[in-house]
């Protein structure tokens, strides 16, 4: 299971404010193959709701969301 979450790409969006975490995620996901995982790190608390909304709108799958020491980590699977 953890094998499956090995990210193909990582995006460091720490320090970026709305809307940049979502904008950068939308650009970086294009560099991930379909089925691959993009790991996104962000410090913007709004990204919790926003990355979730982005996944919902684009159809990509938010596999896991973690929170630790002011950093939010997202594992997104590219689905299309």
């Amino acid at each position: 299971m953890s094998e499956e979450l090995t990210p193909e790409k990582e995006l460091d969006a720490r320090g970026l404010q709305c809307p940049m975490p979502v904008v950068k995620t939308s650009q970086e996901i294009k560099n991930v193959s379909v089925g691959g995982i993009l790991k996104v790190m962000a410090t913007d608390p709004g990204s919790m709701a926003d990355i979730t909304a982005w996944c919902k709108s684009t159809g990509n799958e938010l596999v896991k969301m973690e929170q630790g020491e002011g950093v939010f980590v997202f594992f997104i699977r590219r689905t299309n």
């Binding site: 809307p19 979502v22 904008v23 939308s26 650009q27 684009t58």
Partner: peptide, 11 residues
């Protein structure tokens, strides 16, 4: 511009 870039990011 924030809404426009976000809308574009959301496909």
């Amino acid at each position: 511009f924030i809404i426009a870039t976000t809308a574009a990011a959301m496909g």
